[in-house]
């Protein structure tokens, strides 16, 4: 077995895989945030709580309806998306005329309510959610051990990100979305029902968070605070990638996950802060983010 600068390859690749897994969740969540910000001009602070909700819906489905992982992978995002649609239709919609800050405060409130309610009901110890039978175990790649489920999470998140990118950049519906992001009033004057598009965009954006929640359930415990731990890093990722840049959100999600993994190997003390250090540097040198357009 070879060694890299005194680091055993098992440790290096193990951390890189862990970084890639974290990166997969960063990418899925920051993708949803970027889509929502582009269309609604709202920084959706409830994103982490809706990710948590996705994991809990998967757990409920298993506990009370006997519906396992694969069913939850479809149903939980639908449920979270519908919750998002109700939030947008009944409340969030009223805030668009005001400053962005109000949307942020409102969604922050929603996040606290959701997390508080789940904490009251389920405590903070967390529920365990079994890895689906099909993806139990793993394989030895020679240089590292790859658990099948973790490989699946990485592949699925890449597929979902690619599909979302394709839908936005290459389809007719995506061109409506891009145009409405630029000039919603004119798009509406062409006969397109923009208010419904905005509602659906919020629904799809938070459904992505719900999907990430289901994917996370077998890896991390299903825990009311799982979202608030993650969302702070995801906001840093979005700022680094550039607010509203779909491409930037996805690429910086994976890159920062990997970078965190590398930092754990080479400078473990810094692994918790590396993302925020980069955020500070990016904000100072390029406030619009690495892939963002200056407004």
């Amino acid at each position: 077995m070879f060694e890299l600068i005194g680091i055993p390859p098992q440790a290096l690749f193990g951390q890189l895989l862990l970084g890639l897994i974290n990166g997969s969740f960063y990418a899925l969540l920051s993708l949803g945030l970027a889509v929502i910000f582009g269309m609604l001009n709202v920084i959706n602070f409830a994103h982490g709580a809706l990710y948590m909700l996705g994991a809990f819906v998967a757990w409920f489905l298993l506990e009370y309806a006997g519906i396992g992982y694969w069913g939850a992978l479809i149903l939980a995002p639908v449920v979270v998306g519908l919750v998002g649609i109700v939030i947008e239709k009944t409340m969030l919609q009223r805030l668009y005329k005001l400053d962005h800050l109000y949307g942020l405060l409102f969604t922050f409130g929603i996040a606290l309510i959701l997390e508080g309610a789940f904490k009251h009901e389920f405590g903070v110890s967390g529920q365990s959610y079994a890895t689906p039978a099909l993806l139990k175990g793993g394989t030895n790649l020679g240089f590292m051990f790859l658990p099948f489920y973790r490989g699946w999470v990485v592949v699925l998140s890449i597929l979902v990100c690619l599909a979302t990118w394709y839908a936005i950049e290459k389809t007719r519906l995506g061109s409506y979305l891009r145009a409405a992001t630029e000039n919603p009033r004119l798009v509406q004057a062409f006969g397109i029902n923009v208010p419904v598009m905005i509602t659906l965009t919020y629904g799809v954006g938070v459904a992505l968070a719900g999907l990430a929640g289901v994917m996370a359930a077998p890896i991390y415990s299903v825990n009311p605070l799982m979202g608030s731990h993650l969302i702070i890093v995801v906001f840093a990722v979005v700022v680094i990638g550039g607010m509203g840049s779909i491409f930037g959100a996805v690429v910086s999600g994976y890159m920062l996950g990997l970078l965190e993994g590398l930092t754990k190997v080479f400078l473990p003390e810094a692994s918790n802060i590396v993302v925020f250090v980069i955020m500070v540097v990016v904000l100072l040198l390029r406030p619009a983010g690495l892939f963002g357009r200056e407004r």
Binding site: Q188, F190, N193
Partner: peptide
């Protein structure tokens, strides 16, 4: 009427 309905 909303703009998208007027356009129609």
């Amino acid at each position: 009427m909303a703009p998208h309905r007027i356009a129609r």
